[in-house]
Computed example of a mutant assay.
Amino acid sequence: MGDVRDLRSAASARRRDAQTLAGELVVQAERSAPRVVRHWVMRTIADAGVGGSSNQVVELLTAELVSNAVVHGPEAGEVRVEVRIDAESVRVGVRDTGGGRPTVGHPEPTAPSGRGLALVEALSSDWGIQTHADGKTVWFEVRTHED
């Protein structure tokens, strides 16, 4: 289903007390992708010691962004997910080769969809969209501790 690339190449980066951990997963843009990515991200951040409500927020927002990439990206495309964990936060970026620029929607209460980016905006510490010649990356950050 997915191609996991562990970016923690240096021995010091593999230790639990390392400053920054990073990983990447590439999956096909299909219905099962959000579930596969969500489970991978949850294992990755749990292994880094991130728990509690931060863990749950990252899980929800990751699933939303991957779902958007699958629904709005090209059929049979790839979705690339990057996770970066440091002492302050978790950053997740979801890249696809779809066109257009996502916007925050405010659908009617009875609408069946359209709330994903509104959730990202409301629950993340920061978020944004980075455009590329071949698509875009939508990313968010969640702080892992209170100041």
Rank of each mutant, 00 (worst) to 15 (best):
M1I: 05
M1D: 13
G2M: 14
D3A: 14
D3M: 14
D6V: 14
L7R: 06
R8G: 13
S9M: 12
A13N: 01
R14W: 04
R16G: 10
R16W: 14
R16P: 10
R16K: 14
R16I: 15
D17G: 08
Q19K: 09
Q19T: 03
G23D: 13
V26G: 09
V27N: 10
A29Q: 01
E30T: 04
E30P: 00
R31V: 07
R31Y: 02
S32V: 12
S32N: 07
A33T: 00
P34I: 11
V36Q: 15
V36G: 04
V37G: 08
R38K: 12
R38H: 06
W40S: 03
V41E: 00
M42S: 12
R43A: 13
T44Y: 13
T44F: 14
A46F: 05
A48K: 01
G49S: 04
G49V: 06
V50L: 11
G51R: 14
G52Y: 04
S53G: 15
S53A: 15
N55S: 09
V57N: 03
V57P: 01
V58L: 05
E59V: 04
T62C: 09
T62L: 02
T62I: 00
A63N: 10
A63H: 07
A63W: 03
A63S: 11
E64Q: 00
E64M: 07
E64I: 05
L65R: 08
V66K: 01
V66R: 08
S67G: 13
S67A: 12
N68H: 12
A69M: 07
H72Q: 12
P74C: 01
P74S: 13
E75C: 02
E75Y: 00
G77Q: 09
G77A: 15
G77Y: 03
E78A: 12
E78K: 09
V81C: 01
E82L: 01
E82V: 03
V83K: 00
I85M: 09
D86T: 10
D86L: 13
A87S: 15
E88M: 05
S89Q: 14
S89A: 15
V90C: 11
V90I: 06
R91A: 01
V92T: 04
V92H: 07
G93D: 04
V94H: 06
T97Q: 10
G98Y: 04
G99M: 02
P102K: 05
P102S: 12
V104M: 13
V104G: 11
H106M: 06
H106V: 11
P107V: 06
P109R: 05
P109V: 03
P109A: 09
T110A: 15
T110S: 14
A111H: 14
A111L: 08
P112I: 06
P112H: 12
P112C: 00
R115M: 07
L119N: 15
E121P: 09
L123D: 05
L123F: 04
S125F: 09
D126S: 10
W127D: 08
W127G: 11
G128W: 11
T131E: 12
T131N: 08
A133P: 03
G135E: 00
K136E: 09
V138D: 06
W139E: 05
T144L: 04
T144W: 00
H145Y: 04
D147T: 03
D147M: 00
